[in-house]
Every structure is written in structure tokens, then in C-alpha cells.
């Protein structure tokens, strides 16, 4: 089924694990500075290290990257990074809610949790992107985005440092696109 492009997107959600930091850095350094939608990023990260990742992303990003506080409202053109040791959820009113609930897929933040909540809140007005990673977290979540008519992109496993996450997703459903990193950047800049 070909999906109709919505008039606007409520959010772009990106998930990734091992190897995805450099790729996310590359995406944010090449994204157009006037990109108009919120980008929510959930990366697997060490629980006890609060700083470093955010600063690293901000060094090269064309958009401002923040670790959101609980109840923060999403704004277009900003990047929201799931904080260490918290799950990140999206509410119906486009605010962020954080949680210290049990780990999911050995992860907190869990990519599945972020995708599930974004899929429920944004429905067809979102793009979900799953990048390279070393476990299955994110696969069920991006399938849920697909089931709720969001637009889904899975990084081409041939271009992944570790392809377990993307292959797990591709075993569950057929995303709208399977793209290389360069193609993902081009896609985002075309929105």
C-alpha cells in the first residue's frame, strides 16, 4: 500500500544501538538547518554516564540537541535525545514523559518503548527510522509505527556496523524504505 504523505509530521523518531552514534552524528551534521519537525532520538547508552553523548552530538549538529526534561513540549527543528537510564515516551499532546520503569530488551532507554508511544500519539504523522544495532530492541516498535500507518525506514543491513537490529525488524514486516545512510539523509532533507 502506498501511503499518502501527510501535510506535516508531528515527529521523526530515530532508534539505534551499537555503531549508531557516528551515524546519528553524520545525519545531524548534514540535516538542513531549517528542518521543521521535531526529531526524537533513542540510542542505547551506558546507564551511569550522564554526560558526553549530548555534547558530542551538539558539536556537529545543525540543529539544537537537548536531553528533555519530563513534560517538555516538542518543538519543530529541535532534536530530543532520550536521557541515560530513563525511558522516553511521547504523549498525545506532543509532550515528553520519562520513566524509570523496568528495562525492556535489556535497555533503558528502550527504543521499542519510544516507538510504541510515538506510534500511538502521532499515528500516520510520523517517520520512524531504525539504524544499526546489536539487539532486537526497536524491531517490534517500528513495526507498530508501520501498523499505525507511520512512515518507516530501516537502514540497509548491508550498511550497518551491526545488523541484528535492522534484520530483526525486516523479519517482522516490510518497511516503506530500506535505505543507506546517505539515502536516509537525503530523505530527511526532502521532507
Amino acid at each position: 500500500m502506498v501511503k499518502n504523505k501527510p501535510a506535516y509530521y508531528k515527529g521523526i523518531v530515530i532508534g539505534g544501538s551499537a555503531g549508531s552514534f557516528s551515524l546519528v552524528t553524520k545525519i545531524l551534521s548534514r540535516i538542513k538547518p531549517d528542518f521543521k519537525y521535531p526529531i526524537i532520538i533513542c540510542l542505547h547508552r551506558l546507564k551511569h554516564i550522564r554526560s558526553g553523548l549530548l555534547e558530542g552530538l551538539n558539536l556537529k549538529s545543525n540543529l539544537s540537541v537537548v536531553e528533555p526534561y519530563d513534560k517538555l513540549r516538542l518543538e519543530g527543528g529541535k532534536v530530543y535525545l532520550a536521557p541515560s537510564n530513563y525511558h522516553l515516551f511521547i504523549e498525545f499532546d506532543s509532550t515528553v514523559s520519562l520513566s524509570t520503569e523496568e528495562v525492556l530488551n535489556h535497555s533503558r532507554p528502550s527504543i521499542d518503548h519510544t516507538f510504541f508511544s510515538a506510534a500511538t500519539s502521532f499515528r500516520e504523522k510520523m517517520v520512524g527510522i531504525l539504524l544499526t544495532g546489536a539487539n532486537k530492541d526497536g524491531a517490534r516498535g517500528i513495526k507498530d509505527v508501520h501498523n499505525k500507518n507511520g512512515f518507516t525506514i530501516v537502514q540497509d543491513p548491508k550498511t550497518c556496523d551491526v545488523d541484528m537490529m535492522t534484520k530483526s525488524a525486516l523479519q517482522l514486516f516490510n518497511p516503506d524504505k530500506v535505505l543507506s545512510p546517505e539515502e536516509i539523509i537525503d530523505f530527511l532533507n526532502s521532507l
Binding site: 515516551f89 511521547i90 504523549e91 498525545f92 514523559s97 520513566s99 520503569e101 508511544s117 500511538t120 500519539s121
Partner: peptide, 8 residues
């Protein structure tokens, strides 16, 4: 309570 929390 936050709605997404109640659901979970």
C-alpha cells in the same frame, strides 16, 4: 497520572 503511564 500521565496517560501513557496508566496504559502501560
Amino acid at each position: 497520572y500521565a496517560f501513557s503511564f496508566l496504559r502501560r
